[in-house]
Nucleic acid binder design. Structure first.
Lengths: 299, 299
DNA sequence: ATCAGTGATAGCTTTCGACTATGGACGTCA
DNA sequence: TGACGTCCATAGTCGAAAGCTATCACTGAT
């Protein structure tokens, strides 16, 4: 027969309590059960581990040598497994998530805070990246969740939640366009725009929408970070177009933000995971908080 | 249910082979058995460890974190247990033995050599000590075997073997006593003797034997080591009395050795162990060799 | 000498784990 | 596109393992 954990635990318990009967009590077992366990263990190992003698049990020299090693190993295993149970309950673990920069800066901080408040031992790994990278990160398994634009192609992902992100025009308070009641795509034509880099989903969305009415954007400046775009606008270099989710439009004073009233500027946003992948429990909890926060945001 | 080693091994095997079916082959198990093992393991831990998806099995992030720790622990355990099996087979281990100096220097080296030839990984701990100390060492468990004089009092020990050690008179080749055909206790009276310290079993034996015929030894000199005694005799300081087992009587040239023809000078020698104690397998093998060597010696 | 306490043994019962057979999902290839 | 093969899951059955109760044999203490 093979050696089992039960047998090892039985052995160690007997060594500590120096008695089959007492050990049986500790292990919630009958004394004969223990006798059999030890007999089997000794048979399996081919060594006598305990000397059953008058009045009490003594460990053989061989058994004594064994005790520290077994104890160390068993303790390691127990720690590993009890940690794991914590992970299983969602009280521990690492939430690994990739998100568009706008969400990484606006939605996530609050959600992370809430999640950490509920389970202080949970840690977070946030990768902020443009849409194309987000899906790659999810597909490769480098992160478990992705928050990205809704234009993903394949059945490689499960869509866990969908919401909409209103794209807005950002302009100085003094700009004449502020007087319009409603801003449409047509209004964007010929306006000097500060846009994010080509390849970003936002840029593509804008170009596509303008192309639809036969135009291309009038580029005032091209930047990588939305923060830069906002600064440009503030300096009067032009106007920019950012999603509502972008934190940048809220921190900069003296700028005005107005939705662009066009279905093309209501960008779908999804939370995705790799298909067939189970989310770690802590991450599943985090997801729920995310969805709740998005619902709350859209109200 | 509790986590078992089988389950952990099953999990790791599946992780490596990335397939239930293949892992089942490796483990000589049916595939459904593995399915059940993993299901039980996951239930016990409250975590999904494997994602069973199309065509192949993937480890969940949580499971992946777990693999190295489990592997390390399991490997440690395997090493510990396989070492132990070696010990159990007597191929490894430490033989701990206390012996009277005469035996430690004469009988033991050969036996140890033979034992080591049979099992090269066995190591030895030899304590050479006078009779009183030998029994103490055995009683305390500091050694497993003791070779000592036969005058031990208690039922605290098991006597594993008994032999007799002829006590001899050692004298210079030129000494007149060499002309006697037979040496008796009476011959010892008034001879200048080089004796070992009071408290040694040999000294007590000699004093007791002389006292029986109403005498006390004529002390030429008192020494601790038999080697010293022999050197004194060699220098003509007196005669000495040593057991046959003493190696010293063989190495010194120009000395003569004659048995003292008296039952009092046929000292019983025993091999003992603590009662109720199981000998480690390597030590049991060593004991057999000791007994064989003693039998051979007395022929 | 009796009694209390220890571990071992025996007989019975329950539980666990393994096997065979089969089902459902998915990928592949004609 | 449909038949097939592969993979894991499920169901039912059976045997082995492990548990329990009752009792024994031994030892040490009263």
């Amino acid at each position: 027969m093979d050696v089992s954990l039960r047998q090892i635990r039985a052995f160690l318990t007997i060594v500590h309590s120096k008695s089959f009967t007492r050990a049986a009590g500790v292990l919630n077992l009958s004394q004969p059960a223990l006798t059999v366990q030890i007999r089997n263990l000794e048979t399996a190992l081919g060594v006598k581990l305990l000397d059953r003698t008058k009045r009490s049990v003594e460990v053989t020299p061989v058994g004594l040598d064994l005790v520290p090693a077994l104890e160390r190993t068993l303790h390691e295993l127990d720690v590993t497994l009890s940690d794991l149970r914590e992970v299983g309950a969602g009280r521990r673990g690492t939430v690994r998530i990739a998100a568009l920069p706008s969400f990484a800066a606006s939605l996530l901080p609050g959600v992370i805070l809430a999640c950490r408040r509920a389970n202080p031992a949970v840690s977070f790994l946030v990768r902020d990246a443009i849409a194309a990278q987000v899906s790659t990160l999810v597909a490769s398994g480098e992160v478990d969740l992705g928050i990205t634009g809704g234009d993903l192609a394949e059945a490689e992902f499960d869509v866990l939640h969908t919401t909409l992100d209103q794209i807005c025009l950002v302009f100085p308070g003094s700009h004449p366009i502020g007087r319009k009641r409603r801003i449409t795509v047509e209004d964007l034509v010929d306006l000097p725009l500060v846009l994010t880099n080509p390849g970003t989903s936002l840029r593509e969305l804008i170009e596509r929408a303008l192309l639809k009415i036969g135009h291309t954007p009038t580029l005032a400046c091209e930047v990588t970070y939305m923060m830069s775009a906002v600064a440009m606008v503030r300096a009067g270099l032009g106007l920019t177009i950012l999603p509502t989710s972008a934190r940048e439009i809220r921190v900069e004073r003296g700028l005005r933000v107005r939705p662009i009233d066009d279905p093309d500027f209501l960008r779908p946003v999804v939370i995705i995971k790799k298909k067939g992948r189970t989310l770690p429990p802590a991450t599943a909890g985090f997801l729920d908080l995310c969805i709740a926060a998005m619902r709350h945001e859209r109200r």
